[in-house]
């Protein structure tokens, strides 16, 4: 049995998650021992339409993106969403609260009318096609990326955590950011990242998306307890997790 053929594609994103693959450093040899990349714009000049696994980065913001993604889905036996833009829409979804024409003008100014700059509300991959596995994060963690690839190579389901970031803050003895008057999204955000942002003195930005079935009532309670409002939480959530709820600057 030959190694599975892997193709890596990108849509609207910063390509930072693909860079995490390149940055596997010596581990990349291990990765190449398990899979054979056949298309990878960031690292290969080859192209191929014959592949088993598609790893897709970025979100879908244009009609032609949607068409291309559907083609990838058709050819791939397995489709993996790589990084926040692909798994939840990520930062790209910020614009969904705005009028698309405004967005276009604001970003591209006088060039906005050019046909290739057309834009639509952002969608995560699974809002367009079936996604088999999601590697969350902005950017994805190399450790988790490796674990998912190895699980799939062994033919078993990868373990993707479904507990909030709070768990990992507790395990590494990070004091709750609310104690320092921060609004932290860790309580509703899927863990697995080992909570580096709160540990570094920031707050959780929610880049791994929400846990399954977050408790909204509880979130409201936490806000009350620390003298914050649900709107404070909403504003923070909008960065990675909301299709709306932010005001858009006018150009």
């Amino acid at each position: 049995m030959g190694k599975p053929r892997v193709a890596i594609f990108d849509f609207a994103c910063c390509e930072g998650c693909q860079l995490q693959i390149v940055n596997l450093e010596e581990d990349i040899l291990g990765l190449l021992g398990l899979v054979q990349p056949v298309e990878w714009r960031e690292a290969l000049s080859d192209r191929s339409d014959e592949y088993d696994i598609a790893i897709v980065e970025g979100s879908i913001t244009r009609a032609e993106d949607e068409e291309r993604l559907r083609g990838i889905r058709k050819r791939a036996k397995l489709l993996i969403a790589l990084g926040a833009c692909a798994t939840i829409g990520g930062v790209n979804k910020l614009k969904n609260a705005c009028d698309m024409e405004d967005v276009r003008r604001y970003v591209y100014g006088r060039a906005a009318a050019m046909p290739h700059l057309a834009t639509e509300p952002t969608r995560a991959l699974d809002e367009v096609v079936k996604v088999d596995y999601k590697i969350h994060g902005c950017p994805v963690s190399r450790r988790e990326l490796g674990a998912v690839v190895r699980s799939l190579a062994m033919g078993v389901e990868p373990v993707i955590p479904n507990y909030p970031v709070c768990v990992e803050c507790k395990l590494r003895e990070t004091v709750c950011r609310y104690e320092y008057n921060e609004v932290c999204l860790g309580v509703v955000t899927r863990g697995g990242c080992n909570a580096p942002c709160p540990a570094g003195g920031g707050w959780c930005y929610g880049c791994r998306g929400l846990v399954d079935d977050p408790n909204v009532n509880a979130a409201r309670d936490v806000m009350d307890k620390y003298g914050r409002t649900p709107a404070d939480l909403q504003r923070r959530l909008a960065l990675f997790n909301s299709p709306g709820a932010v005001s858009c600057p006018k150009s």
């Binding site: 699980s151 062994m154 033919g155 078993v156 389901e157 373990v159």
Partner: peptide
């Protein structure tokens, strides 16, 4: 049904 049983089957 799960991770281990899938691997057992293989």
């Amino acid at each position: 049904t799960g991770r281990l049983t899938a691997a057992l089957h293989a």
